[in-house]
């Protein structure tokens, strides 16, 4: 990642699509008491797409409409260019879905359960077994996969839920609040795993969360909805990936080091006792190290910092 501006995720060519994977057009869903979606129009391109909103903002409703499980009141939606109303079964063949709630039987092992779900996605018996073994390994379940799911921790259950969504090698997975109920470490593991689903497996991810902060770490694109309305749809790369900074704090001679770095052609800003460098290139670490060594001073802090989407949303609104 070197250039400023728009960066696209690198993926195998078959996954680069000109057309959006998901499109909605003035999608509306009304329940007797509430309006869950209110004329929502969004395009989702391949990559990791975060869908952020408070509880009850309409995230789960949107996923259910996209899967053809729940009819929209008005408006249109398509997945892979297929209409969700007419081509539900065709869409569901190529989509993986991880629900928000518990959905695992307690009395069977993860292996048995995921094999069964693979068969329910249309895989022949042999392929189902082989892909189950692969998928459980990818989500990080090893020996415990032969024990009944009832005895699993929340983190392990979330992994099984993810495995059943991935086992048939879908083209897109829809993950509804996958970090719910996880402790901070489990949360980080799950987020890293979700990032890998796109980066390594080449599967587009639509992931929902009520926490903006965690999605900015992994999503290429974030869609924020509130009360069923689109609040903002923006590429995270514009905000975070390309606006990273390196913060340097020294024991002494801060100004002298700053001058040296400026001579090397870096943009250096002074922020109190700290120097803030725009982190355009990995090579900057070496330049900083050499400059600090040349002056013979101590290095107290050398850390990456970037804007948070939340800051940006608050400060300078920018549409994609």
């Amino acid at each position: 990642m070197s250039s400023l501006g728009r960066t696209r995720c690198v993926a195998p060519r078959r996954y680069r699509r000109a057309v959006p994977v998901i499109q909605t057009e003035e999608l509306t869903k009304r329940f007797p008491a509430t309006t869950a979606l209110d004329q929502l129009t969004i395009d989702v391109e391949p990559g990791v797409v975060g869908l952020v909103g408070a509880n009850g903002a309409g995230k789960s409703t949107l996923i259910k409409i996209l899967l053809g499980l729940s009819p929209a009141t008005s408006g249109r939606a398509s997945v892979f260019g297929l209409d969700v109303v007419k081509d539900g079964p065709k869409i569901r063949e190529r989509v993986g879905y991880m629900p928000e709630h518990d959905c695992l039987p307690a009395d069977v092992s993860a292996t048995e359960f995921v094999v069964h779900m693979a068969r329910m996605s249309g895989l022949p018996a042999d392929a189902a077994r082989e892909r189950t073994a692969d998928t459980l390994r990818h989500v990080g379940l090893y020996e415990e996969r032969y024990r009944p799911i009832g005895g699993y921790s929340t983190g392990m259950k979330q992994r099984v839920k993810l495995a059943q969504a991935l086992v048939h090698d879908p083209e897109i997975v829809m993950l509804d609040e996958p970090t719910n109920g996880l402790d901070p470490v489990g949360r980080d593991d799950m987020l890293a795993l979700i990032r890998r689903i796109w980066a390594e497996f080449g599967i587009t991810v639509l992931v929902t969360s009520h926490l903006l902060g965690e999605l900015e770490r992994i999503a290429d694109h974030v869609v924020v909805i509130d009360a069923g309305r689109l609040l903002r749809s923006s590429s995270t790369s514009e905000f975070t990936r390309t606006s990273q900074f390196l913060v340097v704090e020294l024991t002494a001679e801060t100004d002298a080091v700053a001058a040296t770095l400026a001579e090397q052609g870096l943009t250096v800003k002074r922020d109190g006792a700290q120097l803030v460098l725009s982190l355009d290139d990995e090579a900057i670490y070496d330049v900083v190290r050499d400059a600090v060594a040349a002056h013979g001073v101590g290095l107290i802090r050398l850390e990456q910092r970037r804007h948070h989407i939340s800051e940006i949303f608050g400060a300078e609104p920018a549409d994609d």
């Binding site: 499980l69 989509v95 879905y97 695992l104 039987p105 249309g122």
Partner: peptide, 16 residues
């Protein structure tokens, strides 16, 4: 059993 463990949505989010 499928109702109690809420497994039903997993079936209906598949081709059947």
């Amino acid at each position: 059993r499928d109702l109690r463990f809420k497994t039903v949505p997993l079936y209906f989010s598949r081709p059947m």
